[in-house]
Design a protein around this nucleic acid. Structure first.
Length: 552
DNA sequence: AATTATTCCAACCGCTTCCAG
DNA sequence: ACTGGAAGCGGTTGGAATAAT
């Protein structure tokens, strides 16, 4: 069951202890490795007999000097193991069972403060062990990651956000405008993973006193876990984007915009301000009313560029710099696969619904060597290859003007949209209200009205319900055609269509069709096959890119 | 009912830190 | 200042339980 290390740092049994009744219950461990002539220390699950011995010993001698336990009790356990057993299971006042909502909140808050300092966190949670907390957190991360949801609840992030804002207070921080700062002014997804989400306003009003929360710290640390490998982070980012778009959090729209916009240091400042501040203002102003849909930060930069706490080296661009255009240009093989329209205006940089700039890591990454889970990457590359080969489906290009890069396009398909759908099913009515509320936010105003530059941001507002045929974020086709091949009527803004009637699916479909320049719905359907969404269950059924009609 | 996937969590492992000599 | 042992910490593993198919 459990591994038996050949060379343990635990002490080995003393020969005279070999006959101990607790030496081996045959249930586990106790493998063959020997060091010298001594038998191996027992490993694996503790028996009640062992527990009793250990408890008895500690009662008599107190904690500490764990190596002496073995010597004095005949327990075939190394000191480490004894300490761990005592600390995690035997010591008094241990609280068993699931974490209470209060504890969960505290953990989140503490993690925001401390990162993966489990022991320190445990000190704040009486009766809880670091191991418990760690396991809980890892599970949470895993869950959130899978669902493409944020690790930190809105409230926690908002706290830090406001603090960061105080620090910078201006997006015009030039080169010093750290990702943190940007993120700090960014938006946060609500904690959809929390059972309290929506249902429990208390959670939303929960505002931990995070004195030194840096967004990058928050996200970086959380995502630095091995449970969130780098590429997973990238996926996460993309998924987050999509989720944020599909879910009421509109939010990531802005986030995606921000992260992209940030690349345009010169042209985008105004836009950023317009986008962010307007949005934030609105979000903040309405946060009470729409708290669940509060601004969201997917951690674009923070999370990509944050202070990762993981000690282990992470392959790939862990310390991802801003995916600047320069980088992209200089490296046509940039990992930047997220669709960026040609001759792009800042505002049309990215369709946060379809493409996440957030997941634009180091330019050193290579598109040609997918490091993702494989399936998605393979699909994408195949699609890219096909597309570049046929050159018919235009529009999607890397931010660099260099055509034909192998990383031109990216279709981010979330395997987690079933969850989103579920959420949507539950909350669509409220979202629709909010959608209507948001439909005219500053983006619309700041977005150039041009047939060549449709306000793709607005796409993000399209919910599955609003655009049933679109699925929820599975949209893999490029959002629009390039200028030359644009079928968009001049001065027609799909977002106008969308925002004008957020609750009308047909309107959204029309808008999407306009954006895509063709019958998206049909494509979606053909691609989708039997399902509405490319949910996790549907993902495996997805046709290969070569089988997709749009790539033929 | 069988199989597969997912989640949970106890325990291990290696590294770091602390501290006494 | 250096060294070595003990303790602590965070990351990781893998089996059991549970859920989903």
């Amino acid at each position: 069951m459990y591994r038996v290390k050949s060379e343990s740092d635990c002490d080995m049994l003393l020969p005279e202890q070999m006959d101990s009744p607790v030496a081996d219950d045959g249930s586990s461990g106790g493998g063959s490795p020997h060091r010298g002539s001594g038998p191996p220390l027992k490993k694996g699950p503790w028996t009640s007999a062992e527990d009793a011995i250990l408890v008895d010993y500690v009662k008599k001698h107190g904690e500490g000097n764990w190596n002496a336990v073995q010597k004095n009790t005949g327990l075939f356990r190394c000191g480490k193991s004894c300490r761990l057993r005592w600390a995690n299971h035997l010591r008094p006042n241990l609280k068993k069972g699931a974490f209470t909502p209060e504890e969960e909140r505290l953990i989140i808050q503490l993690h925001a403060k401390m990162g993966n300092k489990w022991a320190r966190m445990a000190a704040h949670l009486p009766g809880r062990t670091d191991n418990e907390i760690k396991n809980y957190w890892n599970t949470r991360i895993k869950r959130c990651q899978r669902a493409g949801l944020p690790i930190y609840p809105t409230s926690v992030c908002n706290q830090s956000s406001s603090e960061d804002q105080q620090v910078c207070g201006d997006f015009n921080c030039g080169e010093n405008m750290s990702n943190d700062l940007l993120s700090g002014n960014s938006i946060y997804l609500p904690d959809f993973t929390s059972d309290n989400f929506v249902a429990n306003p208390e959670v939303l009003s929960y505002t931990p006193q995070l004195s030194a929360v840096s967004i990058s710290n928050l996200l970086g640390q959380s995502f630095a876990s091995k449970n969130c490998k780098f590429m997973d982070q990238v996926d996460q980012a993309g998924i987050l984007k999509q989720s944020g778009c599909v879910l009421p959090a509109l939010s990531d729209t802005i986030d995606g915009v921000l992260s992209s916009v940030d690349q345009f240091s010169n042209d985008s400042e105004k836009l950023k301000q317009a986008l962010v501040f307007d949005y934030l203002n609105e979000a903040n102003a309405s946060s009470k009313g729409i708290a669940p849909f509060g601004v969201a930060l997917s951690g674009s930069h923070a999370f990509l560029n944050g202070n990762f706490s993981a000690s282990r080296p992470i392959n790939g661009p862990l310390k991802m710099e801003l995916p600047s255009l320069q980088d992209t240009e200089s490296d046509p093989n940039s990992w930047l696969k997220y669709t960026v329209a040609p001759a792009m205006q800042p505002t049309e940089l990215v369709d946060p619904y379809l493409h996440s700039p957030v997941a634009t890591p180091s330019p050193k990454s290579e598109c040609a060597s997918p490091r993702n889970s494989g399936l998605l990457e393979e699909l994408l590359h195949e699609a890219q290859a096909l597309r570049s080969g046929k050159n018919h489906l235009p529009s999607v290009r890397s931010s660099s003007s260099s055509a034909g890069t192998p990383c031109e396009t990216t279709t981010v398909v979330s395997p987690e949209f079933d969850l989103c759908h579920e959420y949507w099913d539950e909350h669509q009515s409220s979202f629709l209200n909010e959608c209507a509320h948001f439909s005219g936010y500053s983006l619309t105003e700041s977005t150039p009205i041009s047939g060549a530059s449709p306000d793709i941001f607005q796409l993000s507002k399209i919910s599955p319900a609003q655009s049933p045929s679109m699925g929820s974020g599975e949209q893999a086709v490029e959002p629009k055609q390039d200028t030359a091949g644009s079928s968009l009527p001049e001065n027609v803004r799909p977002d106008a269509l969308i925002s004008g009637n957020t609750a009308d699916p047909s309107t959204f479909n029309n808008a999407i069709a306009i954006l895509l320049g063709n019958d998206t719905n049909a494509k979606c359907k053909s691609v989708r096959g039997d399902g509405i969404a490319f949910g996790s269950s549907s993902w495996s059924n997805m046709p290969r890119a070569s089988e997709m009609s749009e790539f033929k």
